Simulated scan of single mutants.
Amino acid sequence: MIGFTAQDDGLFLVWEVEAGESGASGVINDEAAAEKDMLRALAAFRNGRGRVRYARLAPAPGAVYDYRYGTTLITAHRADGVTVSVAGDAWEDAL
């Protein structure tokens, strides 16, 4: 049987990191790579938060395309140089 992937459905993964006034983000089509990229970027900061979530592009008024976000796969929180990650959406808890 051939496996079904997110990109087969037009989905991709967006990862983002917020660390005060700094941050990083990226778009990729591989879940494991998105998580690694997010954690690597978050590790560059003493404190911050990060997440990986599904997204797709959709037409938007006044713009060529806009993101439509789906399920958050992982959320990470970094405090005093220690990172803790949890499955699912804990973005608001990760301040």
Rank of each mutant, 00 (worst) to 15 (best):
M1Q: 08
E92Q: 12
D66G: 15
V82I: 15
R78M: 12
H77K: 13
V82P: 05
Y69D: 05
R56N: 08
G48W: 00
V14F: 08
R40I: 01
K36G: 06
V52A: 01
S25D: 08
W91I: 09
D37P: 05
R40M: 02
F45R: 08
F12D: 02
G81V: 04
L95I: 11
W91H: 03
V64R: 14
F45Q: 14
R53I: 10
A6R: 09
L13H: 13
A94F: 06
G23V: 07
F4L: 14
D80P: 11
G81T: 02
D8F: 00
D89A: 08
F4P: 03
L95K: 14
Y54Q: 14
D8C: 04
E16H: 10
K36E: 06
A58Q: 13
R56V: 01
A33D: 13
G70N: 02
E21D: 13
G88A: 02
A34N: 01
V86G: 06
Q7V: 04
S25K: 13
Y67N: 10
A19W: 09
G88P: 03
R49G: 10
F12A: 07
V86L: 07
N29G: 15
Y54A: 10
L42R: 03
A34S: 04
V64T: 15
L95P: 12
A41C: 10
G10K: 04
D93P: 07
A60Y: 01
W91V: 05
V17R: 02
A24C: 15
V82A: 11
Q7F: 03
G23N: 06
G48Q: 04
A24P: 12
Y54M: 07
S85K: 11
L57T: 04
V82R: 03
A43D: 06
K36I: 05
A43K: 13
M1Y: 11
R68E: 05
A94K: 06
A33F: 00
G62I: 05
T72G: 11
V27W: 00
N47T: 14
A32W: 00
V52E: 00
W91R: 07
Y67S: 13
T5Y: 14
W91S: 08
G3L: 08
Y69S: 03
R46G: 02
R46Y: 10
D89G: 04
T5P: 02
L13W: 14
L39P: 00
L73G: 03
I2C: 13
L11A: 12
I28G: 02
G81D: 06
V84W: 00
G26A: 04
T83G: 11
V52T: 02
A33P: 12
D8G: 06
